[in-house]
C-alpha cells in the first residue's frame, strides 16, 4: 500500500490520531510517520478545546471546575500585557508574552498536561549551578581547550606573542585529530 502522505514510499505504519472525539487512521511510511509524530506535538496546541456547553461569562465558577473556555470566552479572554486572546493563541500556536501564562492559566494547565503528561515544573531555576556530579563530568578535554583558546586570544591582545605561541602549541598537542584542511 502506498503512503498516504508522500505517495512514494510503501506504507508500513498505521498511524492513529485522536482529535476530541474523532479518531483518524492513516497509512504511512516510516519517514512520514516520524515527521507526523513530531507534528502531533505542535498540533496539540492548535487543537480545538473539546466541546463545552456555552456558559455565560458571569458563571465563571462553573468553568473553574471544568477547566476550559467556551468559544466566546476564548475570544473574550485577553492577556492584559500584550492583548493576545486565547483564540488567537490557538490559531498561532505561540503565546504573546510571559503574562499570557497567567492570563490563560486554566486552559494552559490542561494543555500542558496533555502535551507533557504533567503541569508542574521539576527542574532548574534561572542562574542555578549545575549539580556537582554533572559538573565533574563536564571537565572534559574539550572545555580545557576552550579555556586555553580564550587565554590565547587574550595573550595576542596583550601582545604577549611568546606566551601566545606556547598556548597555540599546547592546544595543538591537545587536539591531534583536529582537521584543518579537509
Amino acid at each position: 500500500m502506498q503512503c498516504e502522505s508522500c505517495k512514494e514510499r510503501e506504507a508500513t505504519i498505521e498511524f492513529t490520531t485522536v482529535a476530541g472525539d474523532e479518531k483518524k487512521t492513516s497509512h504511512l511510511c516510516p519517514a512520514c510517520a516520524a515527521a507526523f509524530s513530531q507534528q502531533q506535538a505542535v498540533d496539540e496546541v492548535d487543537m480545538a478545546e473539546p466541546a463545552v456547553k456555552p456558559t455565560p461569562v458571569k458563571k465563571k465558577k462553573a468553568n473553574v471546575v471544568v477547566g476550559h473556555l467556551s468559544k466566546s470566552e476564548a475570544k473574550a479572554t485577553a492577556c492584559p500585557e500584550c492583548g493576545m486572546t486565547y483564540d488567537e493563541f490557538r490559531k498561532v500556536g505561540r503565546l504573546g508574552c510571559s503574562a499570557c501564562y497567567k492570563a490563560f492559566a486554566k486552559p494552559l494547565k490542561r494543555l500542558l498536561k496533555r502535551i507533557h503528561g504533567a503541569d508542574q515544573h521539576v527542574g532548574r531555576v534561572p542562574g542555578q549551578a549545575a549539580t556537582a556530579t554533572v559538573e565533574e563530568m563536564g571537565n572534559t578535554q574539550v572545555s580545557a581547550v576552550e579555556t586555553l583558546r580564550a587565554e590565547l586570544v587574550q595573550a595576542v591582545e596583550d601582545e604577549e606573542y611568546e606566551r601566545a605561541a606556547q598556548l597555540r602549541d599546547e592546544i595543538a598537542r591537545m587536539q591531534p585529530e583536529e582537521v584543518s584542511d579537509v
Binding site: 496539540e44 505561540r94 501564562y101 500542558l112 502535551i115 515544573h121 527542574g123
Partner: peptide, 12 residues
Amino acid sequence: LGFLTACPTNTG
C-alpha cells in the same frame, strides 16, 4: 511552570 516559552511544547 518553569521557564516560560513562546510555545507550550517547550515550557518547563
